[in-house]
Amino acid sequence: MLVLSRRVGERLMIGDDVVVTILEVRSDGVRLGIDAPRSVVINRAEVIEAVRESNVEATTADDDAVEALRRLMPPRTR
C-alpha cells in the first residue's frame, strides 16, 4: 500500500487518466474528487462488500424456506 500525505487542492494521478483531488479535510474525514473516464468503475469498498454479503445471504436458504418450497411442488408419481 502506498501512503501519501496531501493537502487540500493537491492531486494524485492514477495511471494516465484518473485524477484524485483532495477537496476538504475535516476532523471526521476527507472529501475526495475523482476525475476518471466513464469506462472506469468507481465504487466504495464498503458498498461492494455489503452487496457481496447480501448476495450470499440471498442464495442461502434455511430449512423453513426449503420446506415451504417443497410444499409448493406437486407430489411425485411413479
Rank of each mutant, 00 (worst) to 15 (best):
S27I: 14
G29N: 13
E53T: 13
N43Q: 12
E24M: 14
N55D: 07
A45P: 03
E24N: 09
P75F: 07
P74L: 03
R52S: 14
V19L: 04
V40P: 00
R6L: 07
L12D: 06
M73E: 15
V30M: 00
E46V: 14
A68I: 05
S5I: 15
P37T: 15
I48L: 02
P74Q: 04
D17P: 03
R70F: 10
E10S: 06
N43I: 12
D16G: 11
V18F: 06
I14F: 11
E67F: 15
T21V: 13
R44F: 14
M1P: 15
D64Q: 10
S5P: 05
T60C: 13
T21A: 02
P75H: 01
E53R: 11
E57T: 10
R7G: 15
L4C: 13
V19A: 06
A45I: 03
V30F: 02
E57M: 07
E10K: 02
R31L: 11
V41N: 08
E49V: 15
G29R: 14
R7Y: 05
L12A: 01
D62A: 05
E67I: 15
V20H: 01
E53W: 07
E49F: 10
E67K: 12
A68G: 07
I34V: 04
A65S: 09
A61W: 02
T21D: 00
T59K: 04
I34G: 02
E24S: 15
V41C: 09
T77V: 14
M73H: 15
V30H: 00
G15L: 05
D35Y: 05
G29W: 14
I48P: 01
L4F: 14
P74E: 02
T77S: 10
V66E: 06
A50D: 02
R11M: 07
A65P: 08
R71E: 02
R7K: 10
A50C: 04
R76S: 15
A50E: 00
R6W: 02
G33K: 00
D35M: 07
I34H: 01
R44Q: 12
N55C: 05
N43R: 14
R6H: 07
V47F: 13
R71K: 04
